[in-house]
Amino acid sequence: MSMTRDIPAPVPRRRMPQSLIAARNIVAFLTRSPTSLFGLVVLALLILVALFAPLIATHDPYAQNLQATLQPPSGTHFFGTDELGRDIFSRLVHGSRITLTIISLVTVVVGPLGLFFGTVAGYFGGKVDTVLMRITDIFLSFPSLILSLAFVAALGPSLNNAIIAIALTAWPPIARLARAETLTFRQADYIAAARLQGASSARIIWKSIVPMCLPSVTIRLTLNMATVILTAAGLGFLGLGAQPPLPEWGAMIATGRRYMIDSWWLVTFPGIAILCVSLAFNLLGDGLRDALDPKQMNKR
């Protein structure tokens, strides 16, 4: 058996992908200011709680105990119990999943849709712009809650319909924003250079225009999330969103309203949860506005 071993060739030092460097820089920047750090922490907490909801919850969120209704906060029920004896803490924990679902589904629909309409309208201009922007105007002219109400009334109240309704009313501002951004640099020399390189319109929009719009759209989406959460809670409160017994925060406030005078914990804790998460998104959006500066992003 030979004792010689192949000396491994020195592994060429891999360049860290630019997106990773950028992401690291953004997070580092966000943690430096207390307000955006708060947003980041609350958001991380929300995601963690939603992921590990069954482990964190002390009770089954649906288990009723009519012997222990409207109990004030105590050692066994951290946030008290509601009118059916369900543990409010466990319901809040499970409710975070619903909130997170709403936020992520709305973002997934609204972001790409708004970006697509905005960049295409802005880049091509002329007739394309007119047609796309008039469609946007139609959606923009509906008050979001009213359209959601109409939509939910037509399709029946459920969480999914509420999400679709919210998404339908949330994309036009994004489209407007993306279009305005696109208009400012569609005449830029680097777009002309891309055209001279033979890039197709789709390629220019995807590779040159979308990256330029992305920071402001991300900021706008983050700031929008607070509104989305409030609209979802509002729909839940009106009985048009999540249906009982789902532990949606807005619906919890709605049912707790009747017992509010004697049992403050029924509305207070879901209210605080909604407040914290919407505030967190607002502060995070604010922090992102500074963090997404290109010079900030690509610093090494």
Binding site: A188, D189, A192, A193, A194, S208, P211, M212, P294
Partner: peptide
Amino acid sequence: MVFQDPYGSLHPRH
């Protein structure tokens, strides 16, 4: 083509 303004002719995020 080579453009006039080198600050505007390169994509800032590329």
